[in-house]
């Protein structure tokens, strides 16, 4: 009986020692995770070149009779925080464009021939994707790390990072980011309301690596309030070739329209 007691005590002490030493050796702090979020933003921002891609959005909704497909060409000049989106599908909207510079976004109405300001918080028509999702990522400047834990997501060891918004411009008050421990790539973000209700989950299951940049080539936005409502965004035809300055202008948006 006494031997059993001693053995158990030693085992407990050894476990405690191992836990403490391993924790201190591999511990990461909130500040370091904030830096990793900055790294994530940096990796998805193309400041040194222009960025162009074709973006396909497939949306399902219980009220839809069939999935809705929208396709765009996206032009980005992250150095000026400028973006243009030109509709490719549906055919009836082909050529319609949106221009965003900083927080100013204009959409062009082909009927009235007028530009109107749109807020970045609004969803892209018929999808679960917000205009805000299409700008260069700024998760590190929009949110601060308030805590984290370690976990596993599929095949990957992850940090599960609790984030709190630092400004009112972002659509979600709190987020939970799942970041791979080995390369700090974001896999999943859960977005919460002020009352801590899960509103949306965003999955990033595939990435393309371009030099030191990582761009999510598949993103799934799942509405957590309406079962079966989601939008899958795939990105292809990626190019870093220079885009003419004239593209980032109202004149271009007006001219390409039907």
């Amino acid at each position: 009986m006494m031997n059993t007691f001693k053995f158990a005590r030693r085992l407990l002490l050894a476990t405690a020692f191992f836990t403490i030493t391993s924790a201190s050796a591999f511990a990461i702090t909130n500040e370091e995770l904030q830096e990793k979020l900055s790294l994530s933003d940096y990796r998805a921002t193309f400041s040194g070149s222009d960025f162009q891609a074709t973006i396909k959005m497939v949306s399902t909704d219980p009220t839809f009779t069939e999935p809705k497909v929208r396709e765009y060409t996206q032009f980005r000049r992250d150095g000026n925080d400028a973006m243009v989106m030109v509709t490719l599908l549906p055919e009836v909207d082909k050529g319609q464009g949106k221009l965003r510079i900083d927080e100013n976004m204009w959409s062009y109405d082909p009927e009235s021939r007028n530009f109107t300001h749109t807020t970045l918080k609004e969803n892209i028509e018929g999808t679960d994707v917000k205009n805000n999702d299409m700008k260069k990522p700024t998760i590190a400047t929009d949110y601060t790390v308030v805590g984290f834990k370690e976990g596993k997501l599929g095949a990957f060891d992850v940090y599960i990072i609790d984030l709190k918004a630092v400004n009112e411009e972002v659509p979600y008050a709190f987020q939970k980011a799942y970041m791979r421990k080995d390369n700090f790539v974001l896999l999943m973000i859960q977005s919460y309301s002020l009352t801590d209700r899960l509103l949306r989950t965003t999955y990033y299951p595939t990435y393309s690596k371009i030099d030191d940049k990582y761009i999510a080539t598949t993103t799934i936005y799942k509405d957590e309030l309406v079962a079966g409502k989601q939008t899958t965004v795939t990105m292809f035809n990626i190019s870093l070739a220079p885009i003419p300055d004239t593209v980032f202008s109202k004149a271009y948006i007006e001219k390409i329209n039907k």
């Binding site: 599929g154 896999l187 999943m188 595939t206 990435y207 690596k209 799942k222 990626i238 870093l240 070739a241």
Partner: peptide, 23 residues
């Protein structure tokens, strides 16, 4: 949805020369 993360090869490396060609 988390089955998507069972594939460890989720990152595809692109050739920067190819994607920098004029469009």
């Amino acid at each position: 949805f988390l089955d998507m993360f069972s594939n460890p090869d989720m990152i595809t490396e692109e050739n920067i020369e190819e994607i920098s060609a004029p469009l």
